[in-house]
Amino acid sequence: MTIKKYLSLDNSLESFQLIKLESEIFWKSIELENCWGLQIQAGSKWNKGLSEEQLKDFQNQMNLEFPESLKNFYRTMNGLNKPAVNNNGGEGTLEYGSLFYSYPEDIKIIKSQIEWVLEANKISQGDLKTYNIPPIFPYFGHRFLLFDHPENVLSMYGDDIIFWADILSKGIAKDIFSLYSIKENKNSKIKSFWNDRLDK
């Protein structure tokens, strides 16, 4: 994906469809690096997006109302047809797991990721409502969509939290196409609770 296309992304269905198309082309010839951590396998394709009924059930199971951006993402694609692989630096047994989380297969992983971050930041589920803390939702590894207005993407590894992207589509594209050199201005409207934990 070119920088121009990246910068033009928004959270419309068209943007997620563009990411889907270009990522499947990109993955046709991708090669695994000798490193630790899950990587996308060559030839991976996205699973079919969710129906409105499935989306409703997904939200009910999470006890969350998804923002339109997350709904559009899952309307377009729902995880990958191949598991991600960890080759342990090329020195060990291959391990497999999920990177882009899907419904319903990864409900337990999604919930455990949320609980881990909340516990690491000493927040209970009750605190989210009591103190009006925006909910978080992991869609890829340790990348979380912050349910705020406007929405932001944070990289959250326990209490190690950094700003990642100002919208969901850009956060997804940044990881798929390794566009890490693109620097975006941290949105000043991130709720103060999570803002205080950035770059901790």
Results as ranks from 00 to 15, higher is better:
1 M>L: 06
2 T>C: 01
3 I>M: 08
4 K>S: 06
5 K>L: 15
5 K>Q: 15
5 K>R: 13
6 Y>C: 03
7 L>C: 05
7 L>D: 05
7 L>R: 15
8 S>P: 01
10 D>W: 03
12 S>N: 03
14 E>K: 13
15 S>A: 14
15 S>W: 08
16 F>P: 09
18 L>I: 12
19 I>N: 07
21 L>N: 12
21 L>Y: 10
22 E>R: 09
23 S>Q: 05
24 E>Q: 15
25 I>G: 01
26 F>H: 13
26 F>P: 02
28 K>R: 12
31 E>G: 01
31 E>I: 12
32 L>F: 12
32 L>K: 10
36 W>I: 09
38 L>K: 12
40 I>R: 06
40 I>D: 00
41 Q>A: 14
42 A>N: 11
44 S>Q: 05
48 K>S: 15
48 K>D: 07
48 K>E: 15
49 G>A: 08
49 G>K: 15
50 L>P: 02
51 S>D: 01
52 E>A: 12
55 L>C: 04
55 L>G: 04
56 K>A: 00
56 K>P: 00
56 K>E: 11
59 Q>I: 00
60 N>W: 01
61 Q>V: 04
61 Q>H: 15
64 L>Y: 10
67 P>T: 00
67 P>R: 00
68 E>F: 06
70 L>M: 06
71 K>C: 06
71 K>V: 13
72 N>P: 10
72 N>T: 06
73 F>E: 04
77 M>N: 09
77 M>Y: 11
77 M>I: 12
78 N>S: 12
82 K>S: 12
84 A>E: 06
84 A>Y: 10
87 N>P: 15
88 N>W: 08
89 G>W: 03
91 E>H: 13
92 G>A: 06
93 T>S: 06
98 S>D: 09
104 P>H: 00
104 P>G: 04
104 P>E: 07
106 D>P: 08
107 I>F: 05
113 Q>I: 05
114 I>S: 01
115 E>P: 00
117 V>F: 07
118 L>T: 02
118 L>I: 03
119 E>F: 03
119 E>Q: 12
119 E>S: 12
121 N>E: 09
121 N>V: 08
123 I>F: 05
123 I>L: 15
123 I>Q: 01
123 I>T: 11
125 Q>I: 10
136 I>C: 07
137 F>R: 09
138 P>W: 01
139 Y>P: 04
141 G>D: 02
141 G>Q: 08
143 R>A: 03
144 F>W: 10
144 F>K: 11
145 L>N: 09
145 L>Q: 10
146 L>A: 05
147 F>Q: 03
147 F>R: 02
149 H>C: 02
150 P>I: 05
150 P>Q: 09
150 P>E: 08
154 L>Q: 00
155 S>H: 12
157 Y>C: 14
158 G>P: 01
159 D>W: 00
160 D>R: 08
161 I>S: 02
161 I>D: 07
162 I>S: 13
164 W>S: 13
170 K>V: 13
170 K>M: 12
171 G>V: 05
178 S>V: 11
178 S>I: 11
179 L>C: 01
180 Y>A: 07
181 S>G: 04
184 E>V: 07
188 S>D: 05
188 S>H: 03
188 S>T: 03
189 K>Y: 03
191 K>L: 02
191 K>G: 13
194 W>A: 14
194 W>D: 09
194 W>P: 01
194 W>V: 10
194 W>R: 02
195 N>S: 14
196 D>W: 00
196 D>Q: 07
197 R>A: 14
